[in-house]
Design a protein around this nucleic acid. Structure first.
Length: 602
RNA sequence: GGCCCCGUGGUGUAGCGGUCCAACAUGCCGCCCUGUCAAGGCGGAGAUCGGCAGUUCGAAUCUGCUCGGGGUCGCCA
């Protein structure tokens, strides 16, 4: 062993011990005859002292040390002089008086410093990820991720779930996301596809009688990246036999409360997790993943707007659009500059624009709208809409004197995206969401199908094996859009953590679903043949869930980007700057795979 | 594919038509220093301003294209 202790371990009780430590030179403070080194490893910092009087050789050598050199030091743990303790360090009561110094490895000057409060471009951090990860904050995130995995595994195993690995090299199921594909050498012209999730595999395992399966599954999707999306991510994936929706939700609630209790006991987690139907979530928050830590619910002004006299509103309503609003409490004094910023914000969310209505605080000392006059209102639509209509809008939205109404008009989907993003943004700006609370919510009763304009047909909201509610099976024939599925999402603080469903095991229902989505029997056989074949041999009722591990760790770590909790993530262009992946392969490799690369002409 | 923001010594920023062969902080190098812990003092090196093409008497600064990074809409069953 190169060491007797880690750098973060020595305490006052170790005083007098002769020990050897090893680590990285974090910082050097050279006072001439006396030199201090902060020695760092994963566990913390230890101050080591080189004194020219007590160890002249070591002291001389210490003068050569530079940041990030790897060294081994032997010496005596001693209490620091009175007044020289460092209360900021766990090891701050002691220091190591060095007798011997060994340089284990030298280091180039690092491209950036090892400190938590860092502002370095992501690309530089990723190119030098090995240095980036030396930052205590990054180590802490890696450790937290480890802890979440351990806690989850322990919980799942204790509850009868069997951890089973499934193939990474599998088959393309050309639906949903784009596949990452891998060419087969043995079968020229054929390709494996990396799984977007182990969906069919875990269902087959249920048919196999496994009863309960789980896995930390790597999932691959060749789609554009976001702050919360990487081309490969990890899911806590599970499936259970002989269960109904409530059984699955109960496991979820227990799993997440356990994770929270074990990893962040300081956080408040209201239980039981409330349930919100999809319809209610959209109506109240414009989103199926609302942050329930604050109110600011979205109201609907469509009816009032239709006869308001304001052309934009009227034409939007006439063309089937909606008008929705939120109220920013106490923001009536927002400047033009501030509201322009909000307009810009909603445009970046896809909306055409944003109509603010300021209701002066000085209006109506009673705090009601009754005494509000036109003079109290500031808005671009002030001169187009009657005072009564403006008041009616305010009343419906729940705005009063001192408040700022923010109104968005347009097609329902566009408005919902923009208004819910705006709600989140205002929540952030006004600091309405308590960061110490994790407010989980189950969003349930999703429609089974949604209309796909591109394909001009129905598409599965979740996936094709998700079951309708028993009472909605008849609607498959008469009104597919009204069919509610046994679909559920777990949402926390505005982040979608995962979704799942009870699966279809009834052959007739399954065929209707395929028919509605427009899959031909040939397509069905090609994509889902293996699962359907399995289902012919006795499939138990079952259901499950896929949960984003990266996202929950991100939330627990207090980060706002999953790259911070993934050891080696990719940039927005799906590049790994450390390995420079992806990269061309050699002609020999291409030949072996029977692949010819066509110059794209770029 | 669309939109927005960013790109200046190693790192992070300032400069936004001439006063900039570019400023500040930090890091780096050298010397001094026995109680520091973001050590301190003194001295020094280091960027032709992402790339290309334009506009202009003159471009880090304006325009176009392009490359890279970030955010987002679409997309992500």
């Amino acid at each position: 062993m190169y060491r007797d202790m880690t750098c973060g371990e020595p305490r006052r009780t170790d005083t007098g011990k002769i020990i050897t430590l090893a680590g990285w030179v974090h910082r050097r403070r050279d006072h001439g005859g006396l030199t201090f080194i902060d020695l760092r490893d994963f566990s913390g910092l230890m101050q080591v002292v080189f004194n020219v009087d007590s160890a002249p050789d070591a002291h001389a050598l210490a003068g050569d040390l530079r940041s990030e050199w790897v060294v081994q030091v032997k010496g005596t743990v001693q209490e620091r002089r009175a007044g020289a303790e460092n209360a900021d360090l766990p090891t701050g009561a002691v220091e190591l008086l060095v007798s011997e110094l060994t340089v284990l490895n030298q280091s180039k000057t690092p491209p950036f410093e090892i400190e938590d409060d860092l502002h370095v471009a992501d690309e530089v951090r990723l190119r030098y990820r090995f240095i980036d990860l030396r930052r205590p904050r990054m180590y802490k995130n890696l450790k937290l991720r480890h802890d979440v995995i351990q806690v989850s595994r322990t919980y799942m195993a204790a509850n009868g779930f069997l951890e089973i690995e499934t193939p990474i090299l599998l088959k393309s199921t050309p639906e949903g996301a784009r596949d990452y594909v891998v060419p087969s050498r043995v079968h020229p012209g054929s390709f494996y596809a990396l799984p977007q999730s182990p969906q069919q595999l875990k269902q087959i395992l249920m048919v196999s009688g496994v009863d309960r399966y789980f896995q930390f599954a790597h999932c691959f999707r060749d789609e554009d990246l976001r702050a919360d999306r990487q081309p490969e991510h990890t899911q806590i994936d599970f499936e259970m036999s002989f269960v109904e929706q409530d059984d699955v939700l109960q496991v979820l609630e227990e799993l997440y409360t356990t994770i929270l209790r074990e990893t962040r006991p300081d956080l408040e987690v209201p239980t039981p997790f409330p349930r919100l139907t999809y319809a209610e979530a959209i109506e109240r928050f414009g989103s199926d993943k609302p942050d329930l830590r604050f109110g600011m619910e979205v109201s609907r002004l469509t009816d009032i707007a239709s006869g308001s006299g304001f052309g934009v509103f009227e034409s939007v309503v006439a063309s089937g659009g909606v008008v929705r609003a939120i109220v920013a409490p106490g923001c009536a004094d927002y400047t033009r500059r501030q509201t322009d910023g909000l307009v810009e914000f909603v445009r970046s969310s896809g909306a055409q624009g944003l109509i603010p209505i300021h209701i002066s605080e000085s209006a109506g000392k009673s705090g009601s709208l009754d005494e509000v006059t036109l003079d109290d209102i500031r808005s671009p639509i002030r001169n187009h809409v009657s005072l009564e209509t403006l008041k009616e809008m305010a009343r419906t939205a729940g705005a009063g004197p001192g408040d700022l109404m923010l109104i968005i008009a347009g097609p329902e989907r566009v408005v919902n995206v923009a208004i819910s993003n705006l709600r989140s943004e205002m929540g952030r700006r006004l600091e309405l969401a308590d960061p110490g609370v994790f407010r989980f919510v189950f969003v349930v009763d999703f429609p089974l199908f949604e209309w796909d304009d591109d394909r001009d047909g129905w598409a599965a909201t979740h996936h094709v094996f998700s079951s309708p509610r028993p009472q909605d099976v008849e609607l498959l024939d008469s009104d597919p859009g009204a069919v509610i599925g046994q679909l559920y999402d777990l949402v926390c603080n505005g982040v979608e953590l995962g979704s799942g469903s009870i699966r279809i095991i009834d052959r007739a229902v399954q065929e209707k679903v395929f028919g509605l989505i427009g899959h031909s029997p040939e397509e069905v056989a090609e994509r889902f043949g293996q699962l359907l074949r399995a289902f012919e041999y006795g499939a138990p009722p079952h259901g499950g869930m896929g949960l984003g591990l990266d996202r929950i760790v991100m939330l627990l770590a207090g980060e706002d980007n999953i790259r911070e909790v993934i050891a080696f993530p990719k940039t927005q262009a799906a590049v790994d700057p450390l390995f420079d992946a992806p990269a061309p392969i050699t002609q020999e490799q291409l030949d072996e795979l029977s692949i010819r690369v066509v110059d794209s002409g770029g």
